[in-house]
Design a protein around this nucleic acid. Structure first.
Lengths: 134, 134, 134, 134
DNA sequence: GTGGTCTAGACCACA
DNA sequence: GTGGTCTAGACCACT
């Protein structure tokens, strides 16, 4: 699982975890019944206090996205799997809409906008490649 | 100057002020040298404690967007064009970075991402055109 | 950490805190990664409102000297050596600039200025030597 | 008369004026009985509100350094002229002492300190030359 | 426990 | 009139 935590963004860490796990479930990247990484492992992975991960998992459980089984692990709850791509697109469109609005307001032309996006994509795509190799 | 403050959004009020003033300066709606509303006036306007406005102005000054002069008032700093362009790029890059991260996480490939961006841009660009005609 | 605050000097308290902490970091008395006293503790220590300390810490963070982590504490940032050297030079340049301005105004020529500086340096350098021996 | 006003130093402008005029009188650069530039002229020269200059002059008058004659102008009060050079040296030594202390604390060696001073001196000396040409 | 934000109100300093 | 600082105390959010 790929999580990007920004310790300096001001957004609480547990919120960042929740949002990202939630989205990956909704988008179908994490299938129902699949086991999630343990609290400890995720804490190590993203260099965060285990309590913080635990809090995120608790809230995810309350919202019905995951299920905790004592002594066994954490699992993705079964979710109806219709409209997966629609969900993905909805998420990404929200952000791109914001980018488009700002670009128009700031009079940034489409070519520059496109270049900047390519640059950012490159950055994170290559970063995720490296992790997969691990 | 028109500011929209949401007192219940969870986003600190001083941050909202900063973002909106910054936006208006970068977009060129507030020209260099122009006087801003006084701390107390803005505080009344958006129904907030003057210290909150003062804090926002203080940070905006540190970022080089405005200049405060005791006993005189607050003024928009004169930004060199390259500085302003850098600021614009910085704002848009922040959003695009988010889009890139999400795209990679949700396994949306670059082509699709690009198409979705073009779609959104088209939507808002043509909308702003209409306004210009008005 | 030892701080000397003068409540009646006219220099804002938060500025005094900033200067002294900055000084100790740049001089290497506070190592990178080290935890600083908490906002509340320092506030008690120097008998000041916690907000005043918080403001100082906030500015120190913006200048890159420290890092605050909610719910955890405040830590000295890890400064690269060149960054630290630049900071040192900046501090000393501020004072030397003042000396240069005064010298020109009072029509003291460069040679005399240089001699006076050498004299003062000698004085404090040898004094610090003695301390090292202790 | 050469005045260096820093609008961003935090030190009130009227204080900067007072200090600098006072020092030039004490050091003998402004002789007793000599006429000072008018409030308006100085205000133009250093780009400051005339009220600010006037306030500085008022305080200088109260301290006995200058005398205002209605409709005529402002004059330097007669001062005993002993210890002129000593006064100059005392002023400059105060600043250099500070520089020396900081340099030793920050472990800046004498050679670098000397170079930095030369740099600053050059900057302000050449600046004053240009003005003299005017 | 940690830090962050906001308020109401006081007082100061500057132009 | 302008901005700057500080306080006391409340409440929130994070670990």
């Amino acid at each position: 699982m790929l999580l990007e935590i920004d310790h300096h963004s001001g957004v609480p860490i547990y919120r960042q975890i929740i949002e990202q796990v939630e989205q990956q479930i909704v988008a179908g990247l994490l299938a129902g019944g699949e086991q999630l990484v343990s609290v400890r492992d995720m804490a190590k992975q993203i260099r965060v206090n285990p309590m913080t991960v635990s809090k995120a998992y608790s809230l995810l459980e309350m919202e019905g996205y995951i299920e905790r089984q004592r002594g066994v692990g954490v699992f993705v709850a079964k979710l109806r799997k219709d409209r997966r791509d629609a969900a993905k697109r909805h998420i990404i469109e929200g952000i791109l809409k914001e980018a488009a609005v700002k670009a128009v307001q700031l009079e940034i032309d489409e070519q520059e906008l496109r270049d900047l996006l390519a640059e950012q994509y490159e950055r994170f795509y290559s970063r995720s490649e490296k992790r997969d190799v691990k």
